[in-house]
Amino acid sequence: MNDEATRAYSYFPGCSVTATNRAYDISTRSVAGALGVELAELDDWNCCGATAYLPIREKRSFVLSARNLAIAEKQGRELATICNACYVVLRKTNKHLAEDPKLHEEVCQALAAGGMDYGGTVRVRHFLDIVVNDLGEEAIRSHVTRDLSGLKVACYSGCQLSRPFDDLDDPEYPELMGRLIGWLGAEAVPFPMSAKCCGGLAMTTRPEIGQTLTGKILKVAKQAGADCVTTCCPLCQINLEGYQGAVGAAIGADCSIPVLYFTQLMGSAFGLGQKELALKDSLTPVKALLAEKVGT
């Protein structure tokens, strides 16, 4: 379905990267540009429904996702996402529609009310998957211009990159991001918390749960000797970077560690500038770390 010559994908940014986590969107586009990957943003995309719409109105949430998939189907390319929740919800919609023809028909009837249709052919991909599996080691290594050796990274994949769909990465011990970090020249430290939950929305609704879960991740990252944590999901990122003081106090451990998107570290290795990677958005000392270790 992809155009091999230009490596073009449809692109679904997702709501949270339009403002709070825009650094993820900005750095993704910059990295894609450097790699010669075209990301064509879906025209007038809407919220995928995320994990919070589904438990209130399931079928409406399938319609929300299906509208995006319908727009992507017209472009005839695979659909790249950068948010783990969008990735799961869009894939889940595909799966439910494929396994339940009656539901597919109902959803298509609903789409028709707004002048759209969805045949069910769009393959949903996480950008991390595209970078590692479509581009591969040689292409990534050939773009590295800065020396990342000596930088120790705790790769945090989060829940939904490899669960419930376990065909992309190991659901217990993910290794996709670690491979990429190695190609960039940095060292991925053994990090058993990579696929443990950060608490997601519980950081807001039940802070005592969210703080404990996020705290364990940050604490172990420090114990593992990491200089920083890399993420591939905007909600994980804000939980890990935004509450380190409160989290540290809650679990009685030092939880201060720079947290950045894997795309920011990629861009850094590729020689991209601070602005192209939106490093000033960071809530943790990412700029200082990269200035010291990489020279960004």
């Binding site: 403002a19 007038d44 809407n46 319609v63 509208r67 109902e106 609903a110 028709a112 009310a113």
Partner: peptide, 26 residues
């Protein structure tokens, strides 16, 4: 202070059509 808060939410252009779709499934 980092410009990361969206104070006024923008609406998608196709909101009216999206509402028609949601009403239809309902």
């Amino acid at each position: 202070f980092r410009g990361r808060l969206e104070i006024f939410g923008r609406k998608i252009k196709g909101l009216e059509n999206l509402h028609k779709m949601l009403a239809a499934i309902e």
